[in-house]
Design a protein around this nucleic acid. Structure first.
Lengths: 205, 205
DNA sequence: CACTAAATCTGACAATGTGTCAGAATTCCA
DNA sequence: TGGAATTCTGACACATTGTCAGATTTAGTG
């Protein structure tokens, strides 16, 4: 079956939003302005979304999957821990680089709406839990020092979020490799300090 | 001389704002609502502030000094590096704990206004520079591994900002010591990994 | 093809919050 | 006490939001 007319309209609006946010901040996005760039009228927007924040929530859903997948390499325990973490972070940086403007827009929009704020915090918090679990596992295996996993996981994740959104959120994006090697350095030093090759030499300046 | 009437009015408005933000998020702050909690009318607000974002900028200025001072212990090179960093972070956590709601409110408000966003980013960025300089110095002294100081400084600072605002921004605040020991762990592991006592044992779980 | 029910869309409205006046009220000091 | 300067306010124009009732279009059926 061909996509329904509704589906076409809906994704036309979503696309228009993505395009808009590619070059302009969330604060400049209005329902009227957005719909003016489509072939539909303003009220049509409300047929498909509750409001601008609901719209952003939908946009976030579209990039969520890619980001979560990136985490698999390290979380799924296969291969060595250091290599898995390296790969997960590399993928994460890639995905964030790709969807930078959307992520920044969602982060910008979140504080303006209680519901979106909860969604965004829950999204960030979900990483805290899985990372924390993995840390506990590596501590049991003796390759990670003993400390409370959850707050450290939270700290590292907040670092990632802050760095990535700052680096890739606005117009000219920062060089991917500088960002990657900085956060890689911090993760490895913190979690695998005994692995000298990992934390000192192999990162490269 | 007694404070002018203008000065009294102005700080009454600022106080009302602080009180409001103690219990409610920035998104609920309106000029009308704020002024209704004072004995002045709405237009009076505009006598003293350009708009809500200018108001937040003023509020930020009031807490800035305290935060910057906290950094001194480590940055001013006296005593051992590890001890200084410990003290700086401890102070930082204290100050952030004290001014949590204001800091969160400013962070929330920033994306909504180009000027405030720049002010906030500049504030955060100022730490990047001084921390980066200190790192370069410790690298020259051979107590910190060799890596690009600036991106790592940025990463660590973003971690602090994210953690502290998350932990102390809203209603019930997280326990200070858990937050402190988490970020301390990450800073020390990253910057002073050769100091085994610092990075492994002395932090305490 | 003609018809109609459902799906899709829109003009127009009420409500809320913003920022700015001209002028009223008050403070202060000569 | 008088009058200029300071401080304050009621009332306005504007922008944006969210919601209708009803118009238009689509798609399936006889």
């Amino acid at each position: 079956m061909p996509p329904s007319k509704a589906a076409i309209t809906r994704s036309a609006i979503l696309d228009a939003g993505s395009v808009f946010l590619e070059t302009r901040p969330f604060r400049d996005l209005t329902v009227g302005g957005l719909m003016a760039t489509t072939e539909y009228s303003r009220p049509t927007f409300y047929l498909y979304f509750n409001d601008l924040h609901g719209f952003m929530e939908t946009l976030l859903d579209e990039v969520k999957v890619g980001i979560v997948e990136g985490a698999r390499a390290w979380l799924s325990n296969e291969g060595d821990a250091v290599g898995g973490l390296r790969q997960s972070l590399t993928t994460l940086v890639d995905v964030a680089h790709q969807h930078g403007p959307i992520l920044k827009a969602v982060a910008d929009a979140a504080p303006g709406d209680a519901r979106l704020e909860r969604v965004w915090e829950t999204f960030l918090g979900s990483f805290d839990e899985v990372v924390s679990a993995r840390i506990a596992q590596d501590q049991a295996a003796g390759i990670t020092p003993d400390f409370e996993p959850l707050p450290v996981a939270r700290a590292l994740n907040r670092m990632d979020a802050g760095m990535l959104i700052h680096a890739f959120g606005s117009g000219e994006k920062a060089p991917k490799d500088a960002v990657l090697s900085a956060i890689m350095r911090v993760w490895l030093s913190t979690l695998y300090p005994f692995d000298a090759a990992a934390s000192i030499e192999n990162i490269g300046r």
